[in-house]
Nucleic acid binder design. Structure first.
Length: 456
DNA sequence: ATCGGCTCGCGCAA
DNA sequence: TGCGCGAAGCCGAT
């Protein structure tokens, strides 16, 4: 089974040479179920050349924290081992990609570089810089979305309802099983030794590698997925919006780092049609339609994290309410340390800091309150994304960007009735949360802990 | 407990 | 040109 060419696009117009094929692993950090890696092997087998996998490491953001790096490194360590068993050398290249990747390519006479796809600004800039510099072909494969981002739609979608029919039409073509990655038969000159991940943590000025609260990596992801499908999927439609229940899948960290393929999850869910139909459809709506809509938004909207990226009606209403007096005004630090008058909001912030994960429903309430309590919408977006990227295990992801923009700037949403500060942006409040779930239980669970912020 | 109004614009039918 | 309906709500009337 060949990789669908619609997943693939050239990032420069250079021809592939006769040297080894390199997969530059970035967003999709897994060995199986990875169309970019499968494509790289397909090309290497056609040309009878070696296949190498590289991971480029450097401090991409001062926001990223030790928890995220631990999670990522644990996954990469497993990747390294799995690749070794398939005779595919793996190596880390440390430094700015436009510096270190061309050096590697030259040294090993690489014929083609294959990279996975991300719609985020920093990721695209890195890929473009490298593609421009190299004299061999640089090819991008969308290994993250079930339907390749540029194929699902050729424009920025207005809302989920405009995107949904396109996705459902294309699913029958793209929602397949994956072929297995093969043991690679062509050996090359790259000799690697086991990566010293602890040394890289030091180099990045991060703490030593300790046990993480989450089991990271491909194997753990599959175990988590199987357990969710078996035990909790059937209640998903009823429990997912209650933060006191364990109703959500908990798969987003694995999906974010690409340790798990969304296509694999969707395929496995569809395989067992004895599950509850309503639950299955609600879950697949979030896993596929809303997640891939987030990629669509960031891919086609250059101002995806700016008020200017929002719908015209939203920009207008935000401008009209810019001068509205805010009853509560908090600084970034007050918000970060959960020192607001709202015990429910504080508990949400504390859940995120403590667990690296905030419940999906809470993320909406949380972001909307930041709009209410900061001087203007852009400040709110900036703070929400800063906190999201710093504390969430699934930070630095189109899902987080789109979620924040939905909450604060009405992206993919409709106008609602006019009110103070929010204008026509959908409003959410404490009373609504009270109606929905037992907020007392939730608040008590994440009681403040004075030592929390000392380690950051 | 349930329902309608709030409010905007896309996409499709005609 | 008209019309249905939408990413998770709120509020007041019944």
């Amino acid at each position: 089974m060949k990789v669908d060419e619609r997943r693939v696009r050239g990032l420069n117009d250079r021809a592939a040479g006769g040297g080894p094929v390199v997969y530059w692993m970035s967003r999709d950090q897994r060995v199986q179920d990875n169309w970019a890696l499968l494509y790289a092997q397909e090309k290497a087998l056609e040309r009878r050349v070696p296949l190498y996998v590289i991971f480029n490491l450097f401090r991409i953001s001062d926001r990223a924290n030790t928890r995220q790096y631990r999670f990522m490194f644990a996954g990469l360590k497993e990747v390294e081992g799995s690749l070794e068993a398939l005779s595919i050398p793996f190596t880390v290249l440390f430094g700015a990609p436009e510096d270190v990747i061309p050096v590697f390519v030259k040294k090993h006479n690489v014929g083609e570089v294959v990279v996975d796809f991300s719609p985020l600004r920093y990721a695209r800039t890195r890929r473009t810089k490298v593609a421009t510099q190299l004299s061999c072909a640089v090819t991008e494969v969308d290994a993250h979305n079930i339907i390749p981002c540029w194929k699902a739609s050729d424009k920025e979608e207005f809302a989920a309802y405009t995107f949904r029919p396109k996705v459902h039409r294309a699913l029958s073509e793209f929602l397949s099983d994956f072929p297995k990655l093969k043991k690679h038969p062509h050996e090359g000159g790259l000799k690697t030794k086991p990566t010293d991940w602890g040394a890289y943590l030091k180099q990045l000025s991060l703490e030593e590698l300790n046990d993480t609260a989450f089991a990271a990596g491909e194997k753990a992801a599959h175990k988590h997925m199987a357990a969710f499908i078996k035990a909790r999927l059937d209640m998903y439609h009823e429990d997912r919006n209650d933060p006191t229940k364990n109703g959500v899948s908990g798969l987003s960290p694995y999906l974010h780092f690409g340790q798990l393929s969304a296509q694999r999850v969707a395929y496995e869910v569809n395989k067992t049609l004895d599950n509850n139909k309503e639950a299955r459809e609600a879950f697949l709506e979030e896993l596929i339609v809303r997640r891939e809509l987030a990629d669509n938004y960031c891919f086609y909207n250059k101002k995806y994290d700016k008020v200017e990226g929002a719908h015209a009606w939203a920009q207008k209403t935000i401008a009209e309410h810019k001068e509205d007096v805010r009853e509560y005004l908090y600084t970034k630090n007050q918000l970060e340390t959960a020192k607001t008058h709202d015990d429910l909001w504080n508990a949400m912030q504390l859940q995120m800091v403590q667990e690296g994960k905030m419940h999906g429903w809470c993320r909406m309430y949380w972001a909307k309150k930041i709009l209410e309590w900061t001087p203007d919408a852009q400040t709110a977006v900036d703070i929400a994304l800063y906190l999201n990227d710093k504390y969430e295990l699934d930070g630095m992801d189109p899902n987080g960007v789109t979620g924040v923009m939905w909450s604060i700037c009405g992206v993919h949403d409709r106008a609602w009735n006019e009110r103070h500060i929010f204008g026509k942006i959908r409003y959410m409040n404490y009373a609504g949360a009270k109606r929905k779930f037992d907020i007392k239980t939730y608040i008590q669970r994440y009681a403040p802990n004075d030592t929390l912020f000392d380690n950051n």
